[in-house]
Amino acid sequence: MPFLFSVPTMVRSMLALVNYSAARRRGLPELPDASGTISNVSDDRLVEALSERGLTAPHQSTVSSPEEAAAAATQIGFPVVLKIISKEISHKTEAGGVVLDLRDANAVQEAAIVLQNKIGEDKIDSFLVQEMVNGLEMLVGVREDPDFGPIVVVGLGGVFVELMKDVSLRLAPVNKADAIEMLSELRGAKALGGFRGQAPRDIEALAQSIVSLSDFFVEHRTWLSEIEVNPVIVLEEGKGIRAVDVRPVRRD
């Protein structure tokens, strides 16, 4: 017999059982063939491949030095975000490898030098200079579960994903109706509709991004064990989303 520690936990558990029962009645989703090519999950191609499916990246440039970072930022336009790219460090924010709201070329160059000194030049493969985008931060991911197969996860993004633990799960692949239902299950769903004077977010674009990432993973599951976009910045209604940080986990 299960033992639940609180009424909210009980309600969420009962809702999960109801959703599972409904899914069983509809029939579990069939996985299409893994027809994607390995080139689509390479470092050089992944962001472009996702952008083609509506997971649009901000304007960005990969560079190898502080001087090149300053030049790239000038071309992109300010403000920008500076991030390290490192094979040794997958969670850049926790490592202190992200600097926000840089407003001129000197600030970008100085920030890159500080990152080199703090993290170590030998650990930094390159820098990513990225247009700074403001909006609601969400997480969208898909991972391979050894028992259930590909599972789609959606939740509040950025630093809040670990703090709030507010996520919704489905077996992949999902359709648009599934994606909207997942969003409605989140405790933070009100933020998408406009909260405390904020404009409503582009729920349609976010739902489509969930479907697109689910389809991409299923097609490329031969090469990927997990893929996560965190954050997905959800812009105002009608303005789409931006896939700010993509973290793939490739199979050996």
Rank of each mutant, 00 (worst) to 15 (best):
E228K: 09
D147W: 09
S225M: 05
E88N: 13
V232Y: 05
L169Y: 13
I84Y: 04
I227K: 03
G197F: 06
L28M: 15
A49W: 02
K118I: 02
G149D: 04
W223A: 03
N19F: 14
Q198E: 14
L15P: 03
I76S: 09
D245I: 06
H59A: 14
Q130G: 07
M132C: 07
S64E: 11
F216S: 04
A23R: 11
F78G: 01
G97N: 07
L46R: 02
R247V: 15
L55W: 04
R196D: 10
D147M: 15
P146E: 08
E131D: 07
L235V: 00
G36A: 08
R24G: 04
A16Q: 15
A243R: 08
R25Y: 12
V161Y: 08
G97K: 05
A177N: 13
E228I: 10
E237I: 00
T74K: 14
R201G: 04
E236I: 05
I210L: 03
A73P: 07
E204I: 00
A179R: 02
V249Y: 00
N106G: 14
R103D: 11
L192C: 06
G141T: 11
R25F: 12
V234L: 05
K176L: 15
V229S: 03
R170A: 12
G77E: 07
A207Y: 01
E162T: 10
G120Y: 12
S126H: 04
D215F: 02
H220M: 02
M14V: 15
I227V: 15
N40F: 04
E88F: 14
I233H: 02
T222C: 01
K83Y: 06
L102S: 01
H91F: 10
L139R: 07
M138V: 09
V249D: 01
G157T: 08
P29T: 00
Q109E: 14
K92S: 07
I89M: 07
E236M: 08
W223T: 02
N106W: 05
R45N: 12
I89G: 07
D125W: 08
A70T: 09
M164Y: 14
E226D: 11
G141L: 03
L55E: 04
A16P: 05
G158H: 10
A49M: 13
E67G: 11
A107D: 13
L156I: 15
A199F: 09
G158D: 09
N230Y: 02
D202P: 03
Q130I: 04
I227W: 03
L55K: 06
R242F: 01
D215W: 00
N19P: 00
P200S: 09
T62G: 03
K165Q: 15
S51M: 04
L139W: 02
T9G: 12
E226Q: 09
Q75S: 13
N175V: 06
R242I: 00
A57H: 14
V129H: 08
